[in-house]
Design a protein around this nucleic acid. Structure first.
Length: 576
RNA sequence: CGGGGAGUAGCGCAGUCUGGGAGCGCACCUGCCUUGGGAGCAGGGGGUCGCAAGUUCGAAUCUUGUCUCCCCGACCA
């Protein structure tokens, strides 16, 4: 590609509305431009990277026996009403009507559509296992789109759907996809973790998220430093705590704690450690049900765990008014002793071994000390309710400790079971001629988000440092002063042709610009390898090869430089 | 949806408090000059000051309404 005939509108200054580094750099490098909130144009350079990643995904999906197809982005409401998600999905689903007043939506995902295809076409156990995938533009009307391609409303996604005769067969399909995902992200040279995850609104029995590690990531994840256990903090289990056999010996005593509402303030005022205090929180399912959750003072409530423990569809913190009505106590001094009848008390398992604790006394400016669970108050139920914190013991192995990371969710695999096939009536006949429900799995990869995540993980103060498999071009050839030094331009062009002939993607910077401008642009757009052709080097038959990532620079004879580029690229692309 | 901030040239911003000339840097165009890390000089083009109504002799500036965007939160494969 000739730079002078291509289109790479780079920016010197950072647009003010870009917050994270990948968003800033993608704008500056001329990869994307915003059209509207969460909606972007993919400019030529950005599209090249996206296509590179799509093709890696495509290769690995094909290798894993998934079959490519393409579904519509506009979907009829009837299908969503059948699955029940027309109601459930909420405002994130962009709905509209056609000229005949029929209702449609922009597809945020395609479980309904693919299940409709399968229920029409698949009749026999002989036709499975089956896995369809597509790479397609989705639309989700996010409450708050942000971070450029990281959380857009319109975005490109690879989604795959597996269909199996039973749960065991579905597990195999799931494993196949899981392994394909590992290969995909390894091939891109990304630092990532596969973690256990909550299934959220998609539903199903279990799932893993693929997280690219980055400080700017929106998700907190934990992993064991000893075994393979890793999970999203939303889901991460805390090692179970056995109940201690004896109570504490403290005497229950009411103390005045004027204006001390936070756990930290109360504990320090009473001169006791924070981890001897119990915090009480009231949550609601939004439909009139309330529960009081008890946690050790230094622990944090995991709302998803509480929601799942209660079997609720939704959860939120109760408002001050609701707390007063439900518990009869003022916020800041809540406790389980003498709580209003009918309000269930669920405790985190950490309370199993707590003794002589501080608890709220349910009246303004008062707390108890010396309180003991079981002796001084009743706990309806105990469960794992708190967020894992760094340094916790691993729930799976004996010696491991938990480490915390931040991650960008680039892929998610779900075991769906029969949730959709049952609602939409996707069935098959088994060998005995009996009708059975098909078992499904679904598997997503955010294409644009992965490219953004790779930039988040690979950049420096000069710009992007693309891993070779995702780079829009493998290599650039920069001709210095092509306007004057015609010999330079001709020689550079020769090198460019030779590299292209070797099957490499080459950007030939033939622009009549000053060298500094070219170097800055080449660095900014992240081309991994750069050959500089100048008259001085050429006098000795040499050119300069620079590695964007390492900064390493070598003066080499022309053919050696070409061979070196070929070797480096081949090595980076090889995977087995 | 709650809280905060911002809309002035393609980008980054000043001007708004205290009403009267629409400006600066970068980018762009022309010429000269320069050529190994975003050069220099000279000249030039480009903006209904988000939109609408109001106050005023006069509004980027004051008032009201409205739209959009960004940040924090809630929410979310």
């Amino acid at each position: 590609m000739l730079y002078s005939k291509y289109f790479i509108p780079t920016l010197k200054e950072t647009p003010s509305d870009a917050e994270v580094i990948s968003h800033q750099l993608m704008l500056r490098a001329g990869m994307i431009r915003k059209l509207s909130a969460g909606i972007y144009n993919y400019l030529p350079l950005g599209l090249r990277s996206i296509r590179k990643f799509e093709n890696i995904v495509r290769e690995e999906m094909n290798k894993a026996d998934a079959i490519e197809m393409l579904m519509p982005s506009v979907q009829p409401a009837e299908l969503w009403q059948e699955s029940g998600r027309w109601q459930f999905y909420g405002k994130e689903l962009l709905r509209f009507k056609d000229r005949k007043d029929n209702e449609f939506c922009m597809g945020p995902t395609h479980e309904e559509v693919i299940t409709d295809v399968v229920r029409r076409e698949i009749k026999s156990y002989r036709q499975m296992p089956l896995n369809f995938y597509q790479i397609q533009t989705k639309f989700r009307d996010e409450i708050r789109p942000r971070f450029g391609l990281m959380r857009g409303r319109e975005f490109i996604m690879k989604d795959a759907y597996s269909f199996d005769v039973d749960s065991a067969a579905a597990d195999l399909s799931y494993e196949k996809m899981f392994n394909a995902y590992v290969r995909i992200f390894e091939r891109c040279g990304l630092n990532f973790r596969a973690v256990e995850a909550d299934t959220g609104s998609i539903g199903g029995s279990s799932s893993h998220e693929f997280m690219v590690l980055a400080d700017s990531g929106e998700d907190a994840i934990v992993s064991c430093d000893s075994c393979r256990y890793a999970a999203n903090v939303e889901k991460a289990e805390v090692r179970s705590v056995k109940t201690s056999a004896t109570f504490g010996t403290g005497i229950l005593e009411k103390r005045s704690t004027p204006d001390k509402k936070s756990i930290v303030d109360v504990a320090s005022y009473l001169e006791r450690p924070v981890d001897s205090a119990i915090k009480a929180l009231v949550c609601s399912n939004g439909e009139g049900a309330f529960v009081m959750a008890l946690l050790r003072g230094d622990h944090e409530l995991n709302e998803i765990k509480l929601k799942n423990a209660m079997g609720w569809d939704d959860i939120r913190m109760a408002t001050d008014d609701e707390i007063l009505t439900a518990s009869g106590a003022p916020v800041g001094f809540l406790g389980p002793i003498g709580i209003k009848e009918g309000l269930d008390v669920i405790a985190d398992q950490a309370l199993n071994v707590m003794a002589d604790c501080i608890v709220g006394a349910n009246e303004t400016d008062m707390h108890y000390v010396g309180a003991n669970p079981g002796r001084d108050f009743v706990i309806t139920r105990t469960a794992d309710l708190r967020n894992v914190i760094a340094g916790d013991n691993c729930p799976r192995c004996e010696s491991g400790r938990m480490e915390m990371w931040r991650g960008i969710e680039v892929g998610h695999v779900f075991k769906l079971g029969t949730k959709y096939s049952e609602k939409l009536g996707a069935t098959y006949l088994d060998a005995d001629g009996r009708e059975n429900i098909i078992f499904m799995g679904c598997y997503g990869i955010g294409i644009g988000r992965t490219v953004a995540a790779s930039i988040e993980q690979n950049h420096d103060e000069n710009g992007i440092i693309f891993p070779i498999p995702l780079a829009p071009f493998h290599c650039s050839v920069v001709a210095l002063n092509p306007g004057k030094e015609t010999g330079v331009l001709a020689e550079a062009e020769e090198i460019y042709f030779k590299l292209e002939k070797l099957g490499l993607d080459v950007l030939f910077d033939d622009r009549d610009e000053r060298p500094g401008v070219k170097f800055k642009d080449n660095d900014l757009i992240g081309i991994p390898l750069r050959i500089v052709v100048g008259s001085k080097g050429l006098a000795e038959g040499k050119v300069e090869l620079k590695n964007r990532k390492t900064g390493e620079m070598q003066l080499l004879p022309i053919d050696d430089a070409i061979a070196a580029v070929k070797t480096i690229v081949d090595k980076a692309l090889a995977f087995e």
